[in-house]
């Protein structure tokens, strides 16, 4: 199982109502239904993803995180999941505020632009870093709002979320979960999974 999925599943109470934003072909939704008896809804922008989900019997809405979160009523979910998507949205602040409105808790995973390799690439080459995880060039990347763990923690607090846990992930290795952002977490984590709770 993917390490970020594993980390997410650990955070889910049995029978929760969950919204998976950017659910792709519904792999995580299926896991949540099977392993956790969750009642899951998905939001997905691609036709291929939506069709794959519908064929699996999953309840998925075709739509865009930037535009269509208004479809979901206030407090309609126990948990909202946003995997590897926040950095690709037009307005991360608005998206996180919408998630705050919709769900009690949120799990947000993102690539960490503060990772030492990225810092090093930028420092030494003086060019926007291109890595295995972030393989696009600056002019054609969908990731228009890259940030560091520190940056995202600031935004979470600003949108009235309490940070319950930050789980660093490096490749296939999960680091020890922390509750506060620190210099070393921000330096050493390639990706992070944030567990947020409404204040």
């Amino acid at each position: 199982m993917r390490k970020d999925y594993e980390a997410i599943l650990e955070q889910v109470a049995h029978g929760s109502r969950i919204l998976d934003i950017g659910c792709s072909d519904g792999q995580l939704m299926e896991l949540l239904e099977k392993e956790k008896g969750s009642e899951v809804r998905g939001l997905e922008i691609s036709q291929a993803g939506v069709n794959a989900c519908v064929a699996k019997g999953l309840a998925v809405i075709q739509g865009d995180a930037d535009k269509d979160l208004g479809l979901f009523p206030d407090n309609s979910f126990d948990l909202v999941i946003l995997s590897n998507t926040i950095q690709a949205t037009m307005n991360p602040h608005a998206v996180l505020s919408e998630i705050h409105r919709i769900g009690q808790r949120a799990i947000v995973s993102l690539p960490n632009f503060g990772f030492w390799k990225i810092r090093l690439l930028l420092a030494l080459k003086g060019k926007m870093p291109v890595t295995k995880d972030l393989p696009d060039t600056w002019y054609n990347t969908p990731n228009i709002h890259l940030c560091t763990i520190q940056d995202f923690a600031d935004l979470a607090r600003e949108t009235n979320f309490a940070i319950k846990a930050i789980m660093p992930i490096n490749g296939e290795v999960r680091g020890r979960s922390v509750t506060k952002t620190g210099f070393f977490t921000n330096l050493l984590a390639q990706k992070a999974v944030f567990v947020l709770e409404r204040i």
């Binding site: 036709q47 939506v50 069709n51 989900c53 519908v54 999953l58 309840a59 809405i61 075709q62 739509g63």
Partner: peptide, 8 residues
């Protein structure tokens, strides 16, 4: 249990 699609 609703799904939706907007066909292009």
């Amino acid at each position: 249990h609703v799904s939706s699609l907007e066909v292009e």
